[in-house]
Amino acid sequence: MTLIELYAAEVGKRLPLRGRGDIEAELRSTLEDMLEDRSQKAGRPADEAMTLDLLREYGPPDKVAATYHPNQYLIGPRLFPFFVKVLKIVLTVLVIVLAVTLGIQLARQPAGPEFAKAVVSGLLGILGGAVQAFGNVALVFAILERVLPASEFKLDEEQQTWDPASLRQAEEPAAVKPWEPIAGIVFAAAAMIIFNGYADLVGVHFLKDGAWTSIPVLTEAFFRWLPYINILWALQIALNVVLLRQGRWQAATRWFSIALDAAGVVIAYFLLAGPPIVSLSAEALVASGLSGPAAAATVNTAVQLGVRVVIAIVMLVQGIDIVKEVIKLILRRR
């Protein structure tokens, strides 16, 4: 085989089977024409050095082959918007499921260094799961890109029916809906009043001998943290008042909100890692006549576990939210 034939074959190896022979033949013919031209200009017959010079100038086989299929992408522009939509849904569902699972696992974990280890390995597990899901979705779309005709994806229909009037209805990301801060203020104020003035109301209520009786569930451990929680609620009210007045989020209020969320996560960690913050004492349950001694102990364990699960889930969701908000704020600054 001549150098030109070898070169054309090398280019051909990098091309799809369909049309490969044709391209190789055309390339050979072109190179031979070019070589002949050079030979005439040089006034001597073409030799190996001349051929090598020509091939060097024509370029590496990879580069030449790439010109015949310039759009070498895994997922092309027609499928990419659909890919992003599907990916968002899959990742959201996956992270929620894994976060809830982790929350349940953490609630069963005793306090101490093992707990922190479980948090880290759980978060790494979520990250690993997300990366794996990303890979799987990308693989499915890479296959679709190659086997489905373009007509199967009519994403541009949505764009054709797009109405500019919808711009007015679009939500301004920084705008604050009035009900949001109002709900925040009402919630924080109600929580402050109940947990500080009427803590006895937080418990199990039942009718006994025609009168309402209750068993309070909050323990000393909870009340040790209550002053700090009160500070958070008060600051939450202050933030919501500012938001109500300004009507929109600003960098300062966003950072302040993130700081409050972070403080909430820290307190939640201590509530989770410390002694139980709720307790349904077996004695009280037995005395109430609601259950027997064996069932009372089980109920107490179940309630404590349930509260820990809720705290763990809230902590995780809040943590993820904080990271998202911080990233958004940093990106917005650029």
């Binding site: 391209i23 013919s29 072109t30 024409d33 024509y58 370029g59 030449v64 010109t67």
Partner: peptide
């Protein structure tokens, strides 16, 4: 292809082979 390349060059339109052949296809 090669004749077209030269023809275009003679008329002041230099095109790289790597551009012309895929365009023809």
């Amino acid at each position: 292809g090669y004749a077209l390349l030269k023809l275009l060059a003679d008329r002041g339109m230099q095109i790289d082979q790597g551009t012309l052949y895929p365009l023809l296809r």
